[in-house]
Every structure is written in structure tokens, then in C-alpha cells.
Design a protein around this nucleic acid. Structure first.
Length: 441
RNA sequence: GGCUCUGUCGUCUAGGGGUUAGGACACAGCGUUCUCAACGCUGUAACACGGGUUCGAAUCCCGUCAGAGCCA
């Protein structure tokens, strides 16, 4: 059997993380079965239609690597994959059902006549279980609205059949409408696909993640400095478990091992705490050269154009210093900007140091800096200021921390010696001098 | 309200008749340390509740409760 799986988002806004989570399993299953992954735009809800979101859907999937085999392309023709351009098809099939007697006209709309006896059931792939509905609970339902647009229930079935979809993988909010879908397949005499109803992702209030509840779009995560590899890995961990219990794995590894039977049926709370950790893990194990281009690309992205500083060489130099200190690409900025920009000083910060006579100490530090042979060497730098600390009756940590704040205006920076090396001898002395001048005794 | 799905540490989860209920994140403590990280070690923390079956139930069955979804 040639497996064909579709993801069918509605263009009601930039796809949020719940949609991406669904798409991940659609994609992984299709690849696992060496089948086709298809994108279809379900735009029959005209009230909520947002034109740009079609492009955002394509852009998001492309960014995450969900290459689809069939579907619209950026800037290309959405035509056949957009339901709004297939209205005559739904109308034709609705008429066919009326002719067969399983649907009837009702105040301008067309309504499907459900079976009222017996049961409708199917074997759901997720959790491998039988789900059964009494047909007596299924009311007649509208398939074609009076404005000529099909309802979700109808368009979905017709398109899935026409596109020869073999596996319908979607959220379990559709479990209740599946008996309706099955009845439509039956009255056409069509072979229904297999169903896999995934649990839904929920937000802090335990209700389904949605834009209305402030669910972030996938592209916002990109803006916040998350790597796509980390996002994908994190999403995979919600509901699915690697057979060896591994927490870190690639999508390719997942494709080889995936099975719906192993899915956890409970809805998962989307909590980014672990995503932050995973993102840090991915950054730490990234090759320096790769991380360099990721950071440069990120900086360019958020500034919306070319940037002067940091340059490629500057980023390269600083990467070993920050690699273990950033969880997100965005963390790069506050940690390093004092290196390429003028440091800003809030004098209150010096009080937090809990060191007396700072002006005098800074003067001594400047003296040492001026006497030190250039270029400064890390070991000599360290020995010099350890000695100075001892002479002043201070701990080495106190002296280093004072230099740190004097040079950066911050309590937290990358390692001091290395930072100063990037800053340069002249700039370092200049900054310490400035601080010594503005600080009170 | 009817129907359906789901309940294991704070979060993501493993397990699925006999386990000290395992792991990861987070959190706390200790170590290392020029700050912060990273790293290492240690710790706190869970089977929703009630019945039943059984020698034995977190695990199987029934009910209750709770949450979610769809429909009205």
C-alpha cells in the first residue's frame, strides 16, 4: 500500500506550536512508511481567514524541514490544494448523496441523514484501541451550507478520498466527528482511511492550545532563538518515547523507530522549561563553525538586515566563551554586547560588590595594567591580580569581580581574561579609567 | 445536558498482578570556580478516590470524581 498522509491546517493565522506538533507526527509516519506527505489548505471558514497565513504555513514547514511531496509552494499556485477553489466538487458530491437518498435539502443547506441504529466503530492507531459510538447519538448534520461552502466534515472526507489519503492523523478533538465521516464514506461506497487520533497539547489552564489562548506561533520560537532541531526533539518528547528512553535524538532516528502504539494517550502540557534545556544541549554540542553561522543568521534575522558588529571574526572568537553559557541564540546579545558596544554603568552596581575604597583599588589596578607587558598574557594577568588582592587584603574573587564590572558594567560576563583579550589592552584601560573617574571614593 | 477521550513526582514520561515505582527537566544542597554557566555527586517529590477480583492491585473489573473535546 502506498501510504499517503496529509496535514490540513486552516489559514487562520501563523501556525502555532500545536499545529507543528501534529505535523511532526504526520511527517514522521509518512517517512517511516516511505509514503507521501501532503499539505492541504482548509480555508472554508471564511470569517477567520487570514491571507498571509497560507505563506506562513509553508514557511514554517519549510523551516522545520517538513518537506511535503504534494502541496502549494511559496509564491506558487495554491489552487488545487485550497478548498475554497474546489466548491463545485463538493456540490457535485453533495448532490450525489441527495440522489442516493442519504442527504436532503434543508432550508437552502444540504443535510446528511445519519443511520439511527447500530453502532459505528473503528480501530484507532493511537493506543491501538477500538472506539465505538451508538448511531442513535448521531444527529443529521449539515454538509453543504446555504452559501455554497461545504462544512469541515464533508470537505474533509471528499478531499481525503480524492487525494487517496490512507492515514488520517489528527487531534482527538475530531474523535466525535469520526462516526459522521465514516457514515459519509459508507454512503459513497468509499474505502475509509485508517485513523490515528493524537491527544492534544494543552496550555497552562489545561485547555487545548490555541491562538486565542495565546499559543505562540512556531515562527516566534525562531525569533526567540530556538533551534529547529531542539524544537523538533522537544515536540517529539511530548507523547512519544524513544524505545531506549533517550531524550536527545534526531528526527531521522525517530522515523526509524516510530509507532503509534507507543503513544501516550494523555494530553501533554506544553511547558518550555525542558525546551530551554534541550536548546542549550543542542547549542553546546553544535560545531563551533555551525554555531557561528547560526548566531550570525539569527542576528541578521532579528535586526532585519546587515549588522556591523559583531563581525564574523568577532563571533568566532567569542563562541568558545559563550557556548556553554547560552540556552537560546538570543542570550548571545546580553552576554556579549559590552564587547562591541560602549559599556553602560549603573553606579549602584558597584555597591553590590561590597568592596570598600573602590576608587583607590581601581587606581592600583590601572597601574598594574599599565605596567603589564603587552600583549597581556592570561597567566601573568591572573598572577598579577591575585598578588594585588593579597596585598590589599581582598580575595582574588573580589578583585576580579571589580575589574569585571569596571570593564563591562555587568555582574555576569564570559570569563574575564578572555573577554579582555577580545576587548584589547587600550579599550580595557580606558574603561577602567573612566570608571575610576566617575566613581565615588 | 448527551456522547467520547484521558488521569503515575511541579512538568515530560517509563512500567502494567509481587519493583526500594525508574529516567529526564525543573528545584534544593554540596563539589569545582574570577562572575555566570557547563560539569560531577547527593537530595525533595507521584500511581485521583472508593469498591471488587486475587494470597497479593499503581497495574485487571466496576463505580465515583476531576480535566479536556465534540455536539446541543
Amino acid at each position: 500500500m502506498n501510504v499517503r498522509v496529509r496535514i490540513a491546517p486552516s489559514p487562520t493565522g501563523s501556525p502555532h506550536i500545536g499545529t507543528v506538533w501534529q505535523a511532526l507526527f504526520d511527517f514522521v509516519f509518512a517517512k517511516k512508511k516511505h509514503g507521501k506527505f501532503i499539505l492541504r489548505i482548509e480555508d472554508t471558514d471564511r470569517a477567520r481567514y487570514v491571507a498571509e497565513s497560507e505563506q506562513e504555513i509553508v514557511e514554517t514547514f519549510k523551516w522545520l524541514g517538513f518537506e511535503f511531496d504534494e502541496g502549494p509552494n511559496i509564491g506558487g499556485d495554491f489552487g488545487p490544494y485550497r478548498q475554497s477553489e474546489r466548491l463545485e466538487i463538493y456540490e457535485k458530491f453533495a448532490r450525489e448523496l441527495v440522489k442516493k437518498g442519504t442527504a436532503f435539502a434543508d432550508e437552502g443547506a444540504v443535510r446528511f441523514k445519519t443511520k439511527k441504529t447500530g453502532v459505528t466503530s473503528w480501530h484507532d492507531l493511537v493506543g491501538s484501541k477500538l472506539i465505538t459510538f451508538e448511531n442513535s447519538t448521531q444527529d443529521d448534520f449539515v454538509i453543504l451550507k446555504s452559501d455554497g461552502y461545504p462544512t469541515y466534515n464533508f470537505a474533509n472526507v471528499v478531499d481525503d478520498h480524492l487525494m487517496e489519503i490512507t492515514h488520517v492523523i489528527r487531534g482527538n478533538e475530531f474523535i466525535s466527528s469520526t462516526p459522521k465521516h465514516l457514515m459519509i464514506y459508507e454512503s459513497f461506497g468509499w474505502q475509509p482511511p485508517q485513523f490515528a487520533h493524537l491527544p492534544v497539547l494543552v496550555g497552562a489552564d489545561r485547555s487545548k492550545l490555541s491562538k486565542r489562548h495565546g499559543a505562540k506561533s512556531a515562527l516566534e520560537f525562531k525569533k526567540e532563538g530556538y533551534l529547529k532541531e531542539a524544537i523538533l526533539n522537544f515536540l517529539a518528547l511530548l507523547g512519544w518515547t524513544h524505545p531506549e528512553g533517550r531524550e536527545i535524538f534526531t528526527i531521522d532516528e525517530m522515523i526509524g523507530l516510530f509507532n503509534f502504539k507507543d503513544f501516550n494517550l494523555a494530553s501533554a502540557f506544553f511547558d518550555t522549561t525542558k525546551l530551554d534545556w534541550l536548546n542549550g544541549e543542542y547549542i553546546r554540542k553544535s560545531q563551533n563553525s555551525k554555531l557561528k553561522s547560526q548566531i550570525l543568521e539569527y542576528l541578521k534575522d532579528i535586526s532585519g538586515g546587515a549588522i556591523e558588529h559583531p563581525t564574523e571574526q568577532e563571533v568566532e572568537k567569542v563562541i568558545p566563551l559563550i557556548k556553554e553559557r547560552i540556552k537560546k541564540l538570543s542570550d548571545f546579545i546580553p552576554l556579549t554586547d559590552f564587547l562591541w558596544e560602549k559599556a553602560e554603568y549603573d553606579l549602584q552596581i558597584f555597591q553590590k560588590l561590597n568592596i570598600k575604597d573602590q576608587k583607590e583599588i581601581l587606581t592600583k589596578i590601572i597601574e598594574e595594567l599599565k605596567n603589564m607587558e603587552r600583549p597581556w598574557k592570561a597567566d601573568i594577568f591572573e598572577a598579577t591580580f591575585r598578588k594585588l588582592a593579597e596585598d590589599l587584603g581582598l580575595s582574588a574573587a573580589q578583585v576580579f569581580q571589580l575589574i569585571r564590572v569596571a570593564v563591562s558594567g555587568q555582574l555576569v560576563t564570559p570569563p574575564l581574561f578572555e573577554s579582555i583579550q577580545i576587548l584589547g589592552e587600550n579599550e580595557t584601560v580606558k574603561r577602567v579609567n573612566e570608571v575610576a573617574n566617575i566613581i565615588g571614593s
